[in-house]
Amino acid sequence: MLEIKNLHVKIAEDDTEILNGIDLTIPKGEVHAIMGPNGSGKSTLAYVLAGKNDYEVTEGSISWNGDDITELDPDERAAAGVFLAFQYPIEIPGVATMTFLRTSMNAVRKARGQDELSTPDFMRVVKAKAKELNIKDDKLKRPLNVGFSGGEKKRQEILQMSLLEPTLCVLDETDSGLDIDALKIVAEGVNALRGPERAMLVITHYQRLLNYIVPDMVHVLSEGKIVRSGGKDLALELEKSGYAEYGEAAA
């Protein structure tokens, strides 16, 4: 279970508060969606869950399956099962995709007390997952994400997610930039990971994604606070009414 309690976050460099007391609980096995206007703090929340040190938690805590992870380094969180699919995946020139995937998988396996994968096993699992996500072999031969289209990068994120087998999946606008077919493929990839041991937090601007990845709960984030929570129909309502009401409410 993910438990976020009274989370206050500011930018480490200055004193700008971005999250002002977030309370959110996601039981294992559930998928929760977060929607909200641009700049409301959605990505910040995602980054803070992953442990980015540009942000400072000034109050409150985050725990995953009973362990407080607020102070853990990003790689320790990954080992503990946290995975963030980035809104803007990064290009890393000079690092071959396969080298990266292998280093990442083995680091996580090692930290979790599992054996490293042999080369043939590694190749097999990567090829199989890539195929499911419709990622061509030549994309795996290039440096990580370099020259990939927006949609191709998003698919790489989901590939990494399925390889690392996280238990807490945070997807930050994974749907933006995807064409309709890719959206279905990615949603299938995500749904395949749904299970009683996993919790997911799906950030999106579009109700459409939630037709494919049906959430248990939808939360509205506005100005660094959750201002409303509801069932999956809340997304439909927001699609019609927009966020004006919450902006004013919070102001």
């Binding site: 442990g51 790689d75 890393i92 020139p93 000079g94 690092v95 440096p143």
Partner: peptide
């Protein structure tokens, strides 16, 4: 830093992530 965070978010410990990025730099 952004590249470091990305690699570490994928479970790669700091010294290894750093070595990977330096190797990538001279690798070019």
């Amino acid at each position: 830093d952004e590249l470091m965070f990305y690699l570490r978010a994928r479970g790669i410990p700091e010294p290894q992530a750093r070595a990977l990025l330096i190797a990538a730099f001279v690798g070019e």
